[in-house]
């Protein structure tokens, strides 16, 4: 591997012409992904995630900037660059539905320049591990959505590429199928050392899988930090009390937030509540007959951080980014 960077995008920008109008899908962006890292690329619909993924894979030509994949310039060394990549793209079939799973894997393997003899053992392994071996000769069109997505993942991995681009790979999948795909992404990253760029709206999964989170809003990166650091950066000095049952009319400090979570109630005390106020609240809750489950310092979820980030003023992010650079 030529250097420590699996993906290096410098000054990446994409502007589409829509008649006389210019739409800036991705504002000048620099993004580096080291080998072996799992990066979660998050953002609302239309933020520019898919455009970035497709520019990295050479499917969309950037208006400005350079992209190197595995050390190869995507514009100038396309043939070498695409050999580094396997991709599952958003909202598409990715594979030929009239063909069987086996025929698809053979086709996509050969399309990348491998011989049939090289593809067969890997196809067998992938289809076996994903539970498709017994149905390998059936047309993909006859499969369930989850199985079709597994074939798409297998096709992306058939040449054993070091970099995997996954654009919403669990979209439209039921819970079990989404879990299988998620487990596979974890397996690819942890056991096979793949570099993974993942876009998803399932933030719980992204938090679980990603070493680093990049949040994009209106074509601009507004946060780019290791997952733990991002969550810690948005942690607040507030306590979370979990009780069984409901509040039963207990009076809580002004600004406290109450949420039902299954058969439990989550009470989030206001920021900077002092210890005495916490004990007082616990006493009142105890007196109301509620059972105490836990008291802990509140840790925001990625979903909460994400919502906060995308509803904040972009100028704040630019200032914060400038401070980090300085």
């Amino acid at each position: 591997m030529p250097d420590n960077k699996a993906i290096e995008a410098i000054g990446l920008q994409k502007t589409y012409r829509r008649g006389a109008k210019a739409v800036e899908a991705v504002k000048p962006t620099t993004l580096t992904v080291p080998w072996g890292q799992v990066i979660g690329l998050l953002g609302p619909n239309g933020a520019g995630k898919t455009t970035i993924i497709k520019m990295i894979s050479g499917l969309i030509t950037p208006t400005a900037g350079t992209i190197r994949v595995g050390g190869y310039d995507v514009a100038r060394q396309r043939a070498q660059a695409v050999r580094q990549i396997g991709a599952v793209l958003e909202g598409s079939r990715n594979v030929y539905w009239p063909l069987s799973a086996w025929e698809n894997l053979m086709y996509f393997g050969q399309l990348k320049g491998l011989r049939a003899a090289e593809i067969k053992p890997r196809a067998q392994r992938l289809l076996t591990e994903l539970g498709l071996w017994d149905r390998r000769h059936e047309s993909v069109g006859s499969f369930s959505r989850g199985m079709q997505q597994k074939v798409a993942v297998s096709a992306a991995l058939i040449t054993d590429p070091p970099i995997i681009l996954l654009d919403e790979p669990t979209i439209g999948l039921d819970v079990e199928a989404a879990r299988t795909v998620k487990d596979w992404i974890a397996h690819l990253a942890r056991d096979e050392g793949k570099t993974v760029v993942l876009t998803t709206h399932q933030l719980e999964g992204a938090q679980e899988l990603s070493d680093r989170i990049v949040v994009i809003k209106e074509g601009e990166i507004i946060a780019d930090l290791p997952t733990a650091e991002l969550l810690a950066g948005h942690a607040e000095n507030r306590f979370e009390i979990r009780i069984t049952g409901s509040l039963n009319g207990t009076v809580l400090p002004a600004g406290a937030r109450v949420e039902r979570d299954g058969d439990q109630t989550r009470v989030l005390l206001p920021p900077n509540t002092d210890d005495r106020a916490v004990f007082a609240a616990l006493e009142r809750l105890g007196a109301s007959g509620s059972g105490l489950v836990s008291v802990a310092r509140a840790r925001p979820t990625l979903e909460e951080v994400f919502i906060r980030l995308i509803h904040s003023d972009p100028a704040d992010h630019r200032e914060r980014a400038a401070e980090v650079v300085a």
Binding site: K54, S57, G58, L59, R78, A79, Q80, V82, R83, I85, G86, A87, L89, G91, S92, R93, N94, V95, Y96, W97, F108, L111, K112, G113, A155
Partner: peptide
């Protein structure tokens, strides 16, 4: 429409 054209363009050819 099916997205396979993009996948075929991920070939070195």
């Amino acid at each position: 429409n099916g997205g396979t054209l993009e996948q075929t363009r991920l070939s070195p050819a």
